[in-house]
């Protein structure tokens, strides 16, 4: 909308730029100068450098000279099984946790949208998991998953689901870990989903439900024909935000396992700061960057569409 207004003014004075416009542009430039300088210095230059280094053999520790090697870093990454294992696990984790967060968040939002006594209290407490430090969340779930004396084992023994002599090591295998990491992430990030969808629900008029009921719609039909179509813009935004968040998973994994092939971020971090293969790590970082950039394009498109619809 604002962009349209700008074009309109431009059309009015297509050939003459007024003095006021010059003054405004000058002020804008002045106001933006510190930001542009800082962001250029600490964001644009680094991301450009990382693109350049991804084509170089650049190892800090082994004393080999830095030299241009073209696409070799990328080829090596694509040929390494570690990368593909990490990639598969990251995708698996992202899909599982975001899907579960969407379903749970959707139903929690529906619950908390309805009027009932004490609603403020219930709305407030759901923010607690989100506010917890990410790393503390990881440690807390690591504690819950401890074999023998962690809460999960204790509860399963108490319910006699596990026999008295069974004592599984929950975080034993790297493949299985992804499910347990997903549970921790679902616990922490479902509130985020809930709160975004809750905000979206406010804009659905109650009359729609009323008329759906007149047409004889039950619970599921109301969801199918009223709630979900009306909520679609919020669902899209929340979904893309969470996809981008889940794909970069790193913090929790460092707590749960020492195995860097559990996520692309972890593997990249390991290449950079365990072996100091800076060129290779830069190349691998670009896989994450491109993936997230693609999602950002979708996200901005969704935001623009929502803004236009209003």
């Amino acid at each position: 909308m604002a962009a349209q207004m700008a074009t309109r003014t431009n059309q009015k004075h297509r050939f003459t730029i007024t003095r006021r416009q010059w003054r405004d542009w000058g002020l804008a430039a002045l106001f933006l100068l510190p930001t542009v300088y800082v962001l250029a210095k600490i964001f644009v230059v680094p991301i450009y450098e990382s693109a350049v280094w991804s084509f170089y053999h650049y190892n800090l520790l082994d004393g080999t000279p830095t030299r241009f090697i073209g696409l070799r870093n990328y080829q090596e990454i694509l040929a390494s099984s570690d990368f593909w294992v990490a990639f598969d696990r990251t995708v698996y984790f992202t899909v599982v946790s975001v899907a579960a967060e969407l379903v749970f968040g959707f139903f929690s939002a529906l619950l908390l949208h309805q009027m009932f006594p004490g609603r403020t209290f219930f709305r407030a407490i759901i923010i607690i998991p989100w506010a917890l430090l990410t790393l503390v969340n990881g440690l807390l779930w690591d504690w819950i998953y401890q074999p023998g004396f962690g809460a999960l084992s204790v509860i399963l023994h108490g319910l006699h689901i596990l026999g008295p002599h069974q004592d599984p090591v929950w975080l034993g295998s790297s493949a299985g870990i992804m499910n347990f990491v997903a549970v921790a992430d679902i616990w922490k990030m479902t509130p985020f989903m809930t709160l975004i969808l809750l905000a979206g629900l406010q804009s659905i008029p109650g009359e729609l439900y009323e008329s759906a009921m007149m047409d004889g719609a039950g619970f599921w039909k109301k969801l199918r024909y009223v709630t979900i179509p009306q909520l679609m813009p919020s669902i899209l935004v929340a979904l893309v935000l969470r996809l981008m968040g889940a794909f970069r998973v790193y913090d929790i994994l460092t707590v749960f396992t020492g195995d860097p092939t559990t996520s692309v971020s972890y593997l990249t971090f390991n290449y950079a700061f365990r072996y100091f293969y800076l060129g290779k790590a830069s190349a691998m970082a670009w896989f994450s960057t491109l993936f997230i950039l693609a999602l950002i394009v979708v996200y901005i498109w969704a935001l623009k569409r929502n803004a236009d619809a209003q």
Partner: peptide, 22 residues
């Protein structure tokens, strides 16, 4: 403005290595 938003959303891992050298 959307470029600013993109910078906000891009993961730390994208610039981690050059930041370290810096």
């Amino acid at each position: 403005l959307f470029a600013v938003l993109a910078m906000q959303i891009l993961p730390s891992i994208s610039i981690l290595v050059p930041m370290y050298v810096m």
